[in-house]
Simulated assay, not measured.
Amino acid sequence: MKRLKKILFTAFMAAVPVLLPAQKVFDMNLWQGGAPNSNGDTGDTAKVRVYLPSAKEATGRAVVICPGGGYQHLAMEHEGYQWGPFFNNMGIAAIVLKYRMPHGNPDVPLSDAEEAIRLVRRNAAQWGVNTGEVGIMGSSAGGHLASMVATRSVKDARPDFQILFYPVITMMPDITHKGSHDNLLGKEPKKKTEREYSNDIQVSRVTPRAFIALSDDDHAVLPANGVSYYTELYRHDVPASLHVFPSGGHGWGIRESFKYHVEMELMLRAWLRSF
């Protein structure tokens, strides 16, 4: 009986994921030779915080994380830094991006996100990363930035996969998040510009695979954003996974107070292990 209990206890402990501390964490400026584009804010500097798993646990995969904040500020903790240990525990390097605010110039955050992906690939050998397994993740307005990179960036700035939480996708006035729209494009952009930065319209057959999660009762960023994006991915034969939780509202990130926190993590883990 004692032996049986010992065996069962050992099996249980083996099934419980161990939260390993990041082997190495460090900050660095994103741009070493001066940032391109300008948002008129000289004090707004793009930075990254890099979380590297131990060499023993590293899988070679990495993800650039773009927190949300309506293109006005950044929710750096629960949509950024607090994700580091989660990914490191899976052997994935996490690079949290503090991108510059657009103030009406969308090229500012876009260039930061693209450079963050290039930065990971330039340091691939040193950081234990496979250059063909660099993804991008974003929440809310950060999800718009991530999907913007996923649908338009090319060559060494193109991500290999995307993870989107309750994302802003469209810039069309009837569905978009008004704050993100106004901060990114200005209050009175041309219709052509709104269409250009509506990322569901930009999906193609080469758009990278996606994981999308949101809440049905999100009144800040309408669920139609993420659902429309998934529909276009499906229509273009891009592998995608859409998860709509019954409740939770907006902005839960990796907070344990989110009712479906455990389920969300399990779904994301399963998806990441599926390819």
Score class of each variant (00 low, 15 high):
residue 147 S to Q: 03
residue 195 R to V: 14
residue 80 G to D: 01
residue 69 G to I: 08
residue 47 K to I: 04
residue 83 W to E: 02
residue 106 P to C: 06
residue 58 A to Q: 09
residue 237 D to C: 14
residue 196 E to I: 10
residue 72 Q to P: 13
residue 228 S to R: 15
residue 24 K to T: 14
residue 96 V to Q: 01
residue 56 K to S: 11
residue 214 L to T: 10
residue 52 L to A: 06
residue 127 W to K: 08
residue 182 D to K: 14
residue 191 K to A: 15
residue 82 Q to F: 12
residue 59 T to H: 06
residue 158 R to Q: 12
residue 235 R to N: 13
residue 52 L to P: 07
residue 102 P to R: 13
residue 275 F to M: 00
residue 211 F to E: 00
residue 269 R to Y: 07
residue 126 Q to A: 15
residue 259 K to I: 10
residue 71 Y to A: 04
residue 239 P to F: 02
residue 188 E to F: 11
residue 187 K to F: 06
residue 86 F to S: 01
residue 35 A to V: 01
residue 145 L to V: 10
residue 44 D to F: 05
residue 131 T to M: 11
residue 9 F to M: 13
residue 95 I to C: 09
residue 163 I to L: 07
residue 79 E to A: 12
residue 213 A to C: 10
residue 155 K to A: 13
residue 187 K to H: 14
residue 92 I to H: 05
residue 99 Y to P: 04
residue 172 M to C: 12
residue 226 G to Y: 09
residue 56 K to E: 13
residue 186 G to S: 10
residue 134 V to F: 05
residue 227 V to H: 10
residue 233 L to F: 09
residue 69 G to W: 08
residue 183 N to W: 11
residue 199 N to Y: 10
residue 13 M to G: 00
residue 195 R to Q: 15
residue 105 N to F: 13
residue 1 M to Q: 13
residue 207 T to F: 01
residue 149 V to G: 05
residue 131 T to L: 09
residue 233 L to S: 04
residue 271 W to I: 00
residue 255 R to I: 01
residue 85 P to Y: 07
residue 232 E to A: 14
residue 238 V to R: 06
residue 51 Y to P: 03
residue 62 A to Y: 03
residue 7 I to H: 02
residue 112 D to K: 06
residue 146 A to L: 08
residue 37 N to K: 13
residue 161 F to H: 01
residue 163 I to N: 00
residue 8 L to Q: 01
residue 225 N to M: 12
residue 20 L to A: 15
residue 209 R to E: 01
residue 243 H to T: 05
residue 75 A to Q: 11
residue 68 G to F: 02
residue 11 A to T: 09
residue 18 V to Y: 06
residue 258 F to Q: 00
residue 267 M to K: 15
residue 192 K to Q: 13
residue 267 M to S: 09
residue 268 L to V: 02
residue 197 Y to Q: 12
residue 12 F to W: 13
residue 121 R to D: 00
residue 240 A to E: 02
residue 31 W to E: 04
residue 122 R to H: 07
residue 264 M to Y: 04
residue 195 R to P: 10
residue 148 M to W: 10
residue 71 Y to D: 06
